[in-house]
């Protein structure tokens, strides 16, 4: 029984005066305890909206959310705002991309951390301060006593992200959602933060839903990977299976288009043509078809189903998947 199981999540923006646009179009995935699950995709694929929907952070007006998100027996999508507030920060926590704008600029770090401790753990005064210092220390912020008194702008980018992570893990949440947690950071700082997340998962058994566009980050961190395109999961697999045998033309194309540090120089890149704007509605066919090298008229006859053309547990939404000429011998996914 997974900790979080999302079933056919749909998020549609717009209503009366705007043409409705579906940002998330029936996404399903599960996150088990101590598991790191990645949602990968480019801008506009619906990965961030998914995380906001799970956290109940979408605006109440002009948004329609459908499907189920079962978190340990409760459906996150139908919870009352009050119950959701109670759950958020205690059982579910989120880390955002931009640490500066996610922290209140006029409140010292310490107060922002103790606020959470007070709200969810009933800690006050000196015990709360001590606990806050311990949290900062745990996420690798040196001299936490002094840092508690400082304001967000006095910390560096990496330090702020650490502070945010400290706030997120303050109540030992069972599920941590990280939305592009390292995108705004330099690569050496990114390595520090990823290490910290990895450690949290290993030590606490926290489930981590990692949302990112960076396939390199996914390769190093996630156990299970969901590749999203235009609001739908197009490929789901364990990370070794996915990176070893990307089967959806989109995932395959993405991996072929990234310059790799370890590739011999002079090896040409194979970009995916067009842009995310070149898509068709899922109802009409595969949204990726206009950019796909493999598309046939078959691709344009309704939404392709998720199938397992290669290996069990490796699901692909494509009628013309990228398969080797000779069927591979069955491999146990990682």
């Amino acid at each position: 029984m997974p900790l979080l199981s999302v079933d056919e999540l749909t998020v549609t923006f717009g209503g009366r005066d705007r043409r409705p646009s579906t940002a998330v179009d029936g996404v399903s995935f599960t996150v088990g305890q101590g598991q790191v699950v990645g949602l990968v995709g480019e801008s506009g694929c619906g990965k961030s909206v998914t995380s906001l929907a799970l956290m109940g952070l979408l605006p109440a007006k002009g948004v329609t959310v459908g499907g189920r998100a079962d978190f340990d027996g409760t459906d996150l999508l139908t919870l009352s705002p009050a119950r959701m507030r109670d759950l958020r920060g205690r059982e579910l926590a989120m880390i955002f991309q931009d640490p500066l704008s996610s922290l209140n600029p006029v409140v010292p770090i310490g107060l922002q951390v103790t606020e959470i401790l007070r709200r969810h753990r009933g800690l006050k005064g000196e015990p709360a301060r001590k606990e806050a210092a311990q949290l900062l220390d745990r996420v690798g912020i040196p001299d936490p006593g002094r840092r508690l008194k400082e304001y967000p702008h006095q910390l560096s980018g990496g330090m702020r992200q650490r502070a945010l992570i400290a706030m997120a893990v303050a109540c030992a949440p069972r599920l941590l959602i990280a939305d592009e947690p390292t995108t705004a950071l330099d690569v050496t700082i990114q390595a520090q933060i990823l290490e910290l997340l990895r450690e949290l998962v290993d030590q606490e058994g926290t489930a981590l839903l990692m949302i990112t566009h960076d396939l390199g980050v996914v390769a190093g961190l996630c156990d299970q990977v969901n590749v999203l395109y235009a609001g739908k999961a197009v490929e789901t697999a364990g990370r070794r299976e996915l990176f070893g045998h990307p089967t959806h033309p989109y995932a395959h194309g993405l991996l072929g288009s990234i310059p790799r540090l370890d590739a011999p120089r002079g090896e040409p890149l194979h970009p995916i043509r067009g842009s995310i704007n070149d898509k068709i509605a899922w109802a009409d066919g595969c949204a990726f078809a206009p950019r796909c090298d493999h598309y046939t008229l078959e691709c344009l006859t309704g939404t392709p189903e998720l199938t397992e053309p290669r290996a069990a547990g490796h699901r692909v939404r494509c009628v013309n998947p990228v398969l080797p000429a000779v069927p591979p011998t069955a491999e146990v996914p990682a």
Binding site: D293, H294, Y295, T296, E298, T301, P304, E305, T307, P309, V319, N320, P321, L323
Partner: peptide, 16 residues
């Protein structure tokens, strides 16, 4: 590639 893909989908027993 299109025709290749078509063969591939036949092999995989696609829904269409």
């Amino acid at each position: 590639k299109g025709s290749q893909g078509a063969k591939g989908s036949q092999g995989s027993g696609g829904a269409a």
